[in-house]
Design a protein around this nucleic acid. Sequence first.
DNA 1: CCAACATATTAAATCCGTTTAATAAGGTGA
DNA 2: TCACCTTATTAAACGGATTTAATATGTTGG
Lengths: 346, 346
Amino acid sequence: MNGSIADPKAVRRTILRNLRSALLELGSATKAELSDRLGVSFPTVSKFLGQMEKAGELLPVQLDDSSGGRRANRYSYNPEVMLGLALFLERTETSYIVFNCAGEVKDQGHAASVLTADITDFDALIAALVNKHPQISAVSVGVPAAVNNGRLIYIPEYEQFHDLDLKAHCEQRFQLPTVIENDMNAAVYGYYMARHQRSELQPSLVYLYFGQNGPGSGIMLDGNIMRGSSFFSGEVSFVPLYDQYNFGEAMRASHPHPRFPDGDLSVDAVARLIAVFAAVLNPHGVILSRHEANEGLLAQLEAASQAYIPREHLPAFILSDWEQDYLYGLQGLSLDLMLSREAGGN
Amino acid sequence: MNGSIADPKAVRRTILRNLRSALLELGSATKAELSDRLGVSFPTVSKFLGQMEKAGELLPVQLDDSSGGRRANRYSYNPEVMLGLALFLERTETSYIVFNCAGEVKDQGHAASVLTADITDFDALIAALVNKHPQISAVSVGVPAAVNNGRLIYIPEYEQFHDLDLKAHCEQRFQLPTVIENDMNAAVYGYYMARHQRSELQPSLVYLYFGQNGPGSGIMLDGNIMRGSSFFSGEVSFVPLYDQYNFGEAMRASHPHPRFPDGDLSVDAVARLIAVFAAVLNPHGVILSRHEANEGLLAQLEAASQAYIPREHLPAFILSDWEQDYLYGLQGLSLDLMLSREAGGN
DNA sequence: CCAACATATTAAATCCGTTTAATAAGGTGA
DNA sequence: TCACCTTATTAAACGGATTTAATATGTTGG
């Protein structure tokens, strides 16, 4: 009936999630530390930790060092009580990773691509993994597709998955909270969450990628993934940049072009694309994959884009590891689900 | 000490604001209607309305029509208890509007531009208006400048206002809650809030404007104004669109150009700019001023942009009245402040 | 016109987190 | 070792919204 201003259920869940993530981030903490870090009163922290302890979520406690008076109890979270499962659905294969709350990988492997097969392979893989690791309590799936709240909106080449609500499918089949995310979006999220504390002011980031299947990008604004009204946002290959070419065409091959007699459009094209982002979104940073670029190229891009945009409004040029960020992203999405589960839930 | 999960002060303020805005939107309502519209319990609604009635915020009540049982009391808000003041700081002049909570204009007028003068003129104008209308309880100011939380970050040509914290200045001088906003941003906000209920899913909109001082745009994403990391977002004139020209240059004059022998770049340039927005942000709509465009041009743009972006991912092409939207925007910003004031505030 | 019913309002009980007070536990110096 | 100090934890009182019960005020049909 409620749900708007002060839903007690929701408050409870937030407190719980915050306690768990604070304990994981800090490694260990006292009740007082948690209380003022989270802005929740001491008695409340105490009550929740009591429940968590009873549920076996906390590791055997040590005593804190003295600071002049009575020594406080220290608590730390047992990262093994729940496991997460991340699935990477790629064109050539499907890979998976099982990890605990601290992000440590407990199991991993590959399987034939389920994209080229069908959904039963997917189900079988999850069933086997859940059977092997009954502690799994959340699932995240990365896909090279446009996703709308768990539904695969647009997935080129793989007709059998078109318009499938993968989230609903998983949740009802395995009774596990599930999140589906586009690969580029998962990567920006991963890059972001691996280095920013939850409390900081949220940056805007663009992850740029030039795959063999055409370029793509993931955009995060103030900590939120940007999807667009028809899930088209970030489709940078369509951006018109030259009299004759859009970004995709300019990249497809180094077109010979009267204006660029050396024949290499690609540096200028990317610089222009970054200029577009700067003039439209003005993000804090633009990220490129280390596998597709290096410091030298970055410097060239930085110089070239200053021809279009005043330096002080250009984003930071960042090199990162796409595979790693993608992995972190899916882990983070699972972790979010895990930490939000009800106490003693299963 | 608190402020994070359940700050009672904040809860109180939200309830109050929601009650006021619901009463204004609905015209009148019963306690039961308010209760389930806002998701706040009946007793709480009852308590708040009691206080508001005592404070004179409610208009004399009528009885509701019967629906088979006891007839309920109807309440409606007295829009005259507070007035708002909106100031439009433009290059050529400064204009102002005084209005009540229902948006009805109570007073309006012009004065010499304060931008070309200095801040004392500004203060004098407000002082006079507040003196004339003591009911004024919130101020909003629209400026052709980049604004960071009330501070004028970048205001070309008017050095004396550079880096001035106008919000702090007003609030301490007049003891009135104040909001400062960039003109384009106020316009998108105005367009949006004049036709969307607070509860609906929030659209993404781009307001495009081609002034004599160069083009600009205001961007709203999911109901939030987009500002950018260095307050540069929406500076569309920098967007590179052609081998030789960025958007600003292409618009500056109808350049003769080998690719466009008819010499009219401007339609294509705007179509390209819209394509850029579609591929990057994928907004629901792009809005143009009726004073700068008409249905014919809109149709041309719509056709031209399909050369760059598949039709289904293009935004809606919208014609609107910029002056009107700007006005609504500033009114809305003031109204927000007014409705958030403490009960019996003054 | 009155019994039976429907809906509105008011009052009491409850829930949950916070604030404040009381108690426990460990340090320190004479 | 014992007062005394500092800090941790537990217990009680409080605040504010919600849920549930009780009461008030209408309507309707015989």
